[in-house]
Design a binder for these strands. Structure first.
Lengths: 157, 157
DNA sequence: GTCGCTGCAAAGTCTTTGCAGAGAG
DNA sequence: CTCTCTGCAAAGACTTTGCAGCGAC
């Protein structure tokens, strides 16, 4: 087996941990823990997809039809979570800006240009090489992202 | 010297070549060669920057104040050039969508989160590794992009 | 001359903001 | 009770589109 891995099922951060981190974050900034914020975090956690604000909003409306959460609240909460490094946003070409949980758990993406599916991977050689390049060019690296576009296994059949 | 290079001054494709490619492209699609299209291509070529549609439009207005080219024409021409693979568009986080000439001349980007400057580089090891990863995951690679975010040499001083 | 191109302004899309009432602490 | 949060609708930012006249071929 190669050193490439796509398995993120054994998540380092479980939901309870995530939720208490979120509560701590809110408390330390004198912000309030509301049902809307909880539902947004929970829905992000439950979905394995990379979500746009709109698709997240749709998901929430399906799962919690009584709550009537506004799209503006979704945008506001995603910004809050991103500023706090609890979620990461990425641009996927024509698919636009998408959000995913967990900035800590770094990985890169393969994006199928046919079906739009996204596969995650980590490659240590690339990670190391990126560090080295940044160093050689006098750059203090903070973050990086890599996307490979192509046709996925399923779509090739 | 490492195998990293940031030198793209000796461009493979010179302007005359570029222009005649563009003319051929237009001709083969029964499209017309207009002064607006020429000026947009030329301004893109003359600028070493990665340009947003708006910054390109501003540049053109400075250089050709009499022409009064509309922003809509800039958008339309950039789409045309991108569809024809004569320019490439990239998302640079908060800096938004930017365009650069020359899809053939593949390279990746270092983006300074302080001053916004962009440094280009190519690394063969990463290129090879990307191919390998795509293969191992049953993916037919079409394209890829990589961005490293951090603080550039100048801004660290 | 024909038919595509352009500038303009209007219309779309996506995202942010102001506000008054609701609700967490 | 206070002060933040929310939904709503309006406003913004960015991009696309319809149209009538212009201009390349």
């Amino acid at each position: 087996m190669s050193d490439i891995t796509t398995n993120f099922d054994d998540r380092i951060v479980e939901y309870e941990q995530l939720l208490s981190d979120f509560k701590a974050l809110l408390k330390s900034n004198s912000l309030k823990f509301t049902i809307q914020r909880e539902v947004i975090l929970e829905t992000l956690y439950d979905s394995d997809e990379h979500l746009t604000p709109e698709s997240l909003h749709n998901l929430i409306q399906e799962k919690f039809p009584d709550l009537n959460i506004g799209i503006a609240t979704v945008y506001r909460t995603l910004s809050l979570l991103e500023d706090s490094n609890m979620v990461t946003s990425l641009y996927f070409g024509a698919q636009g800006k998408k959000y995913e949980l967990g900035a800590k758990n770094h990985h890169d993406h393969l994006i199928c240009t046919n079906c739009g599916c996204i596969t995650e991977f980590v490659d240590e050689q690339i990670e190391e090489r990126q560090d080295k390049i940044a160093n050689e060019l006098g750059f203090k690296m903070q973050d990086h992202s890599m996307q490979i576009y192509g046709i996925c296994k399923n779509c090739r059949n």
